[in-house]
Structure formats: structure tokens, C-alpha cells
Amino acid sequence: MGFKLLSKLLVYLTASIMAIASPLAFSVDSSGEYPTVSEIPVGEVRLYQIADGVWSHIATQSFDGAVYPSNGLIVRDGDELLLIDTAWGAKNTAALLAEIEKQIGLPVTRAVSTHFHDDRVGGVDVLRAAGVATYASPSTRRLAEVEGNEIPTHSLEGLSSSGDAVRFGPVELFYPGAAHSTDNLIVYVPSASVLYGGCAIYELSRTSAGNVADADLAEWPTSIERIQQHYPEAQFVIPGHGLPGGLDLLKHTTNVVKAHTNRSVVE
């Protein structure tokens, strides 16, 4: 069995187990497998329904001669939608809004960016022009300005110390501490036991640490421990890039980060 097929099978099995364990909360999309990078042309966006009122959005972007996937989250909030992270750029984010209108038909009224990198804030200006209120932590807003990236308009308070959590509509926002970046936030959907790890969490097929220019490698494993301790009931975990899975993604990420750190020390 090929690795790609095995990865998709694991996603399907995880979703099936969740649907059985929580039949009222989960209505997993039966329309197909989780979209992969090879299936999404740059400039297009796919939506994948995880649970009743919960979707991931998947886009792709060219970077350094390669094409990478990027995940975000959409959560229903009454007759409105909360968006977590842009679709990595203005063109993708405009396509995301169009796809949401086509498939869901509810307005996106608020959006949260989970850290300051372009795959999370690139497209904020498109959201703002569409009347979406954009939010991020003060740290993310400051770092985005320093980096020359787009800056969300509103500040999220109460997320300055490791372990801080605040309720934001249908989700809980959690600051686990520094990891992929010093400002990275985690998003949890309690009604569906869905954990969105953003770039602080890796997919299972990833074996290298990737972009760690703004990471705190020493603190990252401790931050992941905080996530595990705060959300032990999480059933569906979405990484910032690639295929979702279960809580095993947290341990896998820790292993990859520690291996990278150990290699760096040896070198």
C-alpha cells in the first residue's frame, strides 16, 4: 500500500471513529477524501466538511520552486461564519470567499490569524475590503508590521502568557507558548472536538522541520505538551499544512522538532 493511500485511509478511519463516538456532533463529509496538494491548482481553494458547521479550507501556493498546501478553518456561528487564517495570499483568499459563498452561503463576518507569517495573514486586506472584521493577538499584529505583512485590524486580548485561553464565538483560542513562531495560536472547536494546530503542528508525513527561522526550538516541545494537557479530548487535529489526523500529530511534531534540534547540535 502506497504512503499517500495509507495517509488518506488514516484520515478516513479517524473521521469514521469520530462519527461513531459522537453521532450528534459529527456529520463528516462523505463526498470524498481530504484534498491534497496535487489536486488543488494554485489560485483555487477546496472546502472539506469535518463536522456539522465545521470545515477546513485548503489552498496551495508556490514557494521556492515548489507547491505547498495550506489549511485553515471555518466555523459556523449562528447565521454567520468565523474564518481562521487566510488562504495564503490575496488571490487565494478572494477564491476562498467565493467558494464559501458557493458552498455554504453564509457571510464571513470575523477572521482570526493564528500567527504573523504570510500563509496566515496574506489576504487580510481582501477580507477587510469584503467587510470582514480581522483579528490577531497584539504580538501577531506587531510582528506582521515588522515583517511588512498585512496586519489584522483588531487585537485579541488575554493571550499574552503561555497557557492563556479565551473564548471567541464558537471557538476557544489558546496560546501554548512559542513553537513554530513566538505568537502562534491554537484554535479548538469544543462542539466538535476539532483542534486546529496551525503551523505549530505537523502532518504525519512530514519528517523535516522546514521553516524554523522564527521558531523557538527549545520551547516548542513544552508548548505541545500544554496543548495535549489542555485538549486531551480532541479527536480531529488539523495541521497548518497537509493531512489531518488525531492527537498523534502532536507527538510526531515533537519528535521531528527534537530530531532537528539534535542534528543542529551535532553539526
Rank of each mutant, 00 (worst) to 15 (best):
K4Y: 08
K4S: 10
L5Q: 15
L6I: 09
L6Q: 10
L6D: 14
L6V: 15
L6T: 08
S7Q: 12
S7A: 09
K8W: 15
K8T: 15
L10G: 13
V11M: 07
L13Y: 14
T14K: 08
T14M: 08
T14V: 08
S16L: 11
S16W: 15
I17F: 10
M18Q: 15
I20F: 08
I20R: 07
S22E: 14
P23F: 09
A25W: 14
A25N: 14
S27N: 09
S27E: 10
D29E: 11
S30A: 14
E33H: 09
Y34K: 08
Y34R: 08
Y34C: 06
P35W: 09
V37A: 15
V37D: 15
V37I: 14
S38P: 10
P41G: 15
P41L: 10
P41Y: 07
V42E: 15
G43F: 06
V45E: 03
V45W: 02
Y48S: 10
I50F: 08
D52R: 10
G53I: 08
V54S: 03
W55D: 00
S56H: 07
S56D: 09
A59Q: 15
T60K: 09
T60I: 14
S62H: 07
G65E: 11
A66V: 15
P69H: 15
N71I: 04
N71V: 02
N71T: 05
G72P: 02
L73K: 01
L73S: 01
R76E: 10
R76K: 08
D77K: 05
G78H: 10
G78K: 08
D79H: 09
E80Q: 13
L82F: 07
L82N: 04
D85I: 00
A87M: 00
A87W: 01
W88Q: 00
W88P: 00
W88N: 00
G89S: 06
A90Y: 08
K91D: 15
A95M: 13
L96E: 00
L96P: 04
L96V: 04
L97I: 07
A98E: 12
A98V: 14
E99S: 14
E99K: 13
I100H: 02
I100T: 07
I100V: 11
I100W: 02
E101H: 15
E101M: 09
K102M: 13
Q103N: 15
Q103E: 14
I104P: 01
L106V: 11
T109D: 06
R110M: 08
A111E: 13
S113Y: 03
H115A: 00
H115M: 02
F116E: 03
H117W: 00
D118N: 08
D118I: 06
D118F: 06
D118H: 07
D119G: 05
R120F: 01
R120H: 07
V121A: 05
V121N: 04
G122H: 08
G123T: 03
G123Q: 04
V124T: 09
V124M: 11
V124L: 09
V126E: 07
V126F: 12
V126M: 06
L127C: 00
R128L: 09
R128I: 11
A130Y: 13
A130D: 06
G131I: 06
G131W: 06
G131E: 07
G131R: 08
V132H: 02
A133D: 14
A136F: 02
A136G: 09
P138Q: 09
S139I: 13
T140L: 03
T140E: 04
R141L: 09
R141D: 02
R141M: 12
R141K: 14
R142Q: 13
A144G: 04
E145K: 14
E147R: 11
G148M: 07
N149V: 09
N149E: 08
N149M: 14
E150S: 03
I151L: 08
P152Y: 00
T153W: 09
T153F: 10
S155D: 13
L156A: 03
L156D: 02
G158W: 04
G158R: 07
S161G: 13
G163C: 00
D164S: 14
A165S: 15
A165V: 13
V166W: 05
V166Q: 10
V166M: 13
V166I: 11
F168Y: 06
P170R: 05
P170A: 09
V171M: 04
E172Q: 06
E172T: 04
Y175C: 04
P176F: 00
P176H: 04
P176V: 00
G177F: 02
G177L: 02
A178R: 11
A178H: 10
T182Y: 13
D183P: 01
L185Q: 02
I186C: 02
I186F: 07
V187I: 08
V187Q: 01
V189Q: 00
S191C: 05
S191I: 08
S191P: 07
A192F: 07
V194E: 03
L195F: 08
L195M: 05
L195S: 00
G197Y: 01
A200G: 03
I201Y: 04
I201T: 07
Y202C: 06
Y202Q: 11
L204F: 09
R206T: 15
S208D: 15
S208T: 14
A209L: 08
G210R: 06
G210F: 03
G210W: 04
N211G: 10
V212Q: 10
V212K: 05
V212E: 07
D214H: 09
A215C: 05
A215Q: 06
D216R: 07
A218E: 13
E219C: 04
W220A: 00
W220G: 00
E225R: 13
R226A: 07
R226Q: 08
Q229D: 12
H230M: 14
P232E: 07
E233T: 12
A234Q: 01
A234K: 03
V237G: 01
V237N: 00
I238Y: 02
P239A: 03
G240Q: 02
H241D: 04
H241N: 03
L243C: 08
L243H: 15
G245L: 02
G245T: 02
G246E: 08
G246W: 03
G246V: 03
L247V: 14
D248C: 06
D248V: 08
L249D: 01
L250I: 07
L250H: 05
T253R: 00
N255I: 10
N255A: 14
V257G: 01
A259P: 08
H260T: 12
H260I: 09
T261G: 12
T261Y: 11
N262S: 12
V265R: 12
V265F: 10
E267A: 04
